[in-house]
């Protein structure tokens, strides 16, 4: 067999594999959307869930998902940013940084159910936070931190060493160089990483089942005082998210339209995650243009 033929076969095989992956994705998306989209309505997206009767919605779960996401990001982003800047810009390669990197790697490969059970024992029980948004946000932080740190570190890595030297040569300190030269240039790719990890956090269920809990008490959307128990902003209330809701109605849902609600919720989840992904691309590109005035 000559090399030209070999090349053709290899290319064919690679195209085949790539095609297969796309096909699987499209089939999954198609199935979820086809069975879920018909269930969607304004009522479904806003009404509270019903435990025994037909016609419940996912309004509270949807709100919980976003609220939890924002809280988790607010906690994990500053930590991840600091860790990544330290690891990539300041730390020298020695046993300390190797240990930190290994720890991050291990943390990122922990099964999320383990993170959830740890969160249950530590935040819910030990720190007495109970099943609450806060417990869930901390658990999600554990889940999210390694991935986010990695992704920010990768963003920093894309900036040439010459950019840093350029800053230093102008008499800027290392910190000024990082904050004025490096970070502005990486904002788009950091933001892309944040949005993509937001998608993962948004769809996370296992880490939340035992931390944020599986119940979604009715919320009073007219009450925005975070200290009131029925306020949507209260971080100490239990909060079932959309992903947890899907898991729950599929394992123990007893409402007559459980299947329809599960399909509808799955479609909402998938659409949200797709939106995150598209937003990541769009915002990243736009922001890059804005910041570099390209």
């Amino acid at each position: 067999m000559n090399s030209k033929k070999q090349n053709k076969i290899a290319i064919g095989a690679l195209y085949g594999i790539a095609g297969l992956v796309v096909l699987i994705l499209l089939a999954l998306l198609g199935y979820i959307l086809a069975s879920g989209l018909p269930q969607l309505s304004w009522h479904f997206l806003t009404a509270p869930a019903k435990a025994f009767l037909k016609g419940g919605g996912v309004g509270v779960q949807l709100f919980n998902s976003f609220y939890l996401l924002i809280l988790a990001m607010a906690i994990s982003f500053p930590i991840a940013l600091g860790a990544a800047i330290y690891l990539y810009e300041y730390a020298r390669d020695n046993w300390v940084t190797t240990t930190i990197r290994t720890a991050i790697e291990i943390l990122s490969s922990l099964p999320s159910v383990v993170v959830g059970l740890f969160g249950f024992l530590f935040f819910v029980v030990k720190l007495r936070l109970g099943f609450s948004i806060l417990s869930g946000a901390f658990a999600l932080t554990f889940f999210n931190l390694p991935l986010l740190t990695r992704s920010i570190e990768d963003s920093l890595r894309t900036i040439d060493l010459e950019q840093r030297e350029g800053g230093l040569a102008l008499g800027l300190s290392r910190w000024e160089t990082i904050t004025r030269v490096i970070l502005p240039a990486t904002v788009p790719s950091i933001l892309t990483g944040v949005i993509l990890s937001a998608g993962r956090v948004f769809g996370e269920a296992a880490a939340l089942i035992y931390t944020a809990g599986q119940s979604a008490p009715a919320l009073n959307f007219a009450d925005w005082n975070p200290f009131n128990i029925s306020s949507p902003l209260n971080p100490m209330r239990p909060a079932e998210t959309l992903a947890v809701h899907i898991w729950k109605i599929n394992s123990e849902g007893i409402m007559p339209d459980a299947k329809a609600i599960s399909s509808g919720s799955s479609a909402v989840l998938i659409i949200a995650i797709l939106l995150f992904n598209f937003a990541a691309r769009y915002v990243g590109k736009r922001l890059y243009k804005r910041l570099t005035s390209a």
């Binding site: 010459e162 950019q163 030297e165 040569a169 102008l170 502005p184 910041l291």
Partner: peptide, 29 residues
Amino acid sequence: VYEMRRRVGMVFQRPNPFAKSIYDNIAFA
């Protein structure tokens, strides 16, 4: 050393303009 580098400037092998406007490349420092 930062003050000193403002007296002893440096230009590198590969052009390394910052990802900023032409004006800001000069003005921001």
